[in-house]
Design a binder for these strands. Structure first.
Lengths: 193, 193
DNA sequence: GTCTATACCGAGATAGAC
DNA sequence: GTCTATCTCGGTATAGAC
């Protein structure tokens, strides 16, 4: 049964090599020849396992987007309330923290990810928008919606920040949740000075 | 004097076409042939005006980065104080708002921008880091630094948000400044739950 | 000083032999 | 499953027309 095992291994090895090279060099700068070389096969052989370079990218960042999708879907069944808001934000932070290793790749190569997922991403984007609107609270002003957007951005700091510091995941979670809440607390405040 | 004027026009037209196509399609998916076509010249003719596709990208997002650089440089001469902090944040928001049209291109094609600016960007990144550290305030904890990162992210909402709404630039400025300040106000707070 | 014709190389992708 | 050979298209480079 060399064939079956070897096949599974090869596909897994390609995946590993892709995760590795994409995260260090970026998507564009990584060629299929390079990946094939690292695995020890030919460029053309890759195509037996993955039908395109984009499919390979999908395999790499797919789980992240799936989890994100799940969280956003969850909030759509919730009425807005401050407790639910806290729960939703918490779930969101959890996903971002859990995947923050693949995060940089995702952030740096958004263009490629957008291209790779195409229309599949439209629904995720739509849900993100609805999530932001939900976060803006009942009867939001334009300023409130901007605040909601800012609150979400806040959470993204988990990826971009240098997290080599001595901060536990629990601490990151607490700090960012607190930050997002602080921004949202400004809702309803009159704009101006 | 057709030559001189035609030359300047051509270069400007290439620039315009690039801004246009990059922002709608993204950097990678826009080919030089496509740009040349839109201008009405040959692919090779582009080469006379811009020595590479990367140089064209530099021309497009360059002023944004220059302005950002200038703001970050400015803050380095300042002692930290809450008034100075407010001023620095204000200047930062102003730059982001002023360039928010080219912002999406910058955000989506970071990978390409990083490649195009290469080492030139290292200093900007270093300054950004110092800015964040400065924002964290005197004797910051790790949590405070995370808060500073989150505050900066907040301001980025000016780009990613759908700004077709009826929000004036002054309003955006006020809201985001307020949001960033709210996040920073949590500095020193013990991390709990 | 401005542009075209043309060639080059490396990329992703496909067809078909083994 | 994996290979070789081949195709197309992208960015790049140069020689030379006007």
């Amino acid at each position: 049964m060399q064939h079956a095992t070897s096949s599974r291994d090869t596909k897994a090895e390609i995946h590993r090599a892709a995760v590795d090279l994409f995260s260090t060099q970026g998507y564009d700068k990584t060629s299929l020849r390079e990946i094939a070389e690292q695995v020890g096969i030919t460029k053309a052989s890759l195509y037996y396992h993955y039908s395109s370079k984009q499919q390979l990218l999908r395999a790499v960042v797919g789980t992240f987007l799936d989890d994100l999708f799940e969280v956003l879907r969850l909030t759509e069944t919730m009425e807005w309330s401050s407790e639910n808001e806290r729960e939703a934000l918490g779930a969101y932070v959890d996903v971002v923290i859990a995947h923050r290793a693949t995060g940089p790749t995702l952030l740096r190569d958004i263009a490629a990810v957008l291209a790779a997922f195409g229309d599949d991403l439209d629904e995720l984007i739509a849900r993100s928008r609805r999530f932001q609107l939900w976060l803006a609270g009942p009867d939001p002003t334009a300023a409130d919606r901007l605040r909601a957007a800012a609150a979400v951005e806040t959470i993204g700091a988990a990826m971009s920040a240098e997290l080599d510091l001595s901060v536990s995941e629990a601490e990151i979670r607490a700090v960012l949740l607190d930050a997002a809440t602080a921004v949202l607390a400004r809702r309803g405040t009159p704009v101006g000075e």
